[in-house]
């Protein structure tokens, strides 16, 4: 089997995960996209393990470890998301801006922050919900 097939599949899955992490607003969908990226990494690990014919099976064993770490990560991540939901009644990651430095940050960011004029209102709303 050509090595290009699994690596290209892994690259495309990773890009889909990157798009999901950057574009999604719901925190649970962001976690799902992170899982997609982790799966792309796993596919690469298995592929190169088989390509190198590793006698210690380092790649596949590391894949098992990655799966376990992903399970731990998703458990902790969902616990944090549920805690945020309990406090704020919403889990939109772009409205959780309590830790942002609003005035200085927006002016420094310039064009990045400009297309979001409704930011101060959502900020006060989040504070009120707390």
């Amino acid at each position: 089997m050509h090595l290009a097939y699994p690596t290209v599949v892994a690259a495309l899955l990773f890009s889909a995960g990157v798009y999901g992490v950057l574009a999604r607003r719901n925190a649970i969908l962001v976690l799902m996209s992170v899982e997609l990226m982790l799966n792309a990494v796993n596919l690469n690990l298995v592929t190169f393990d088989i390509w190198y014919r590793d006698r210690l099976h380092g790649g596949q064993v590391l894949t098992l470890f990655t799966i376990v770490i992903a399970a731990a990560e998703i458990g902790l991540g969902l616990a944090i998301v549920l805690l945020v939901f309990r406090n704020r009644k919403m889990i939109d990651v772009d409205r959780l801006r309590t830790l942002a430095e609003d005035a200085a940050d927006d002016e420094a960011a310039g064009g990045v922050a400009r297309p979001r004029p409704a930011e101060p209102e959502t900020e006060t709303e989040a504070v009120d919900a707390r």
Binding site: L22, A23, R24, R25, L29
Partner: peptide
């Protein structure tokens, strides 16, 4: 479900 920067995200993902 999508935030406002989805086109930037699409560009980044396509570049990746």
């Amino acid at each position: 479900l999508d935030s406002g920067n989805r086109w930037a995200a699409l560009a980044v993902a396509a570049a990746t």
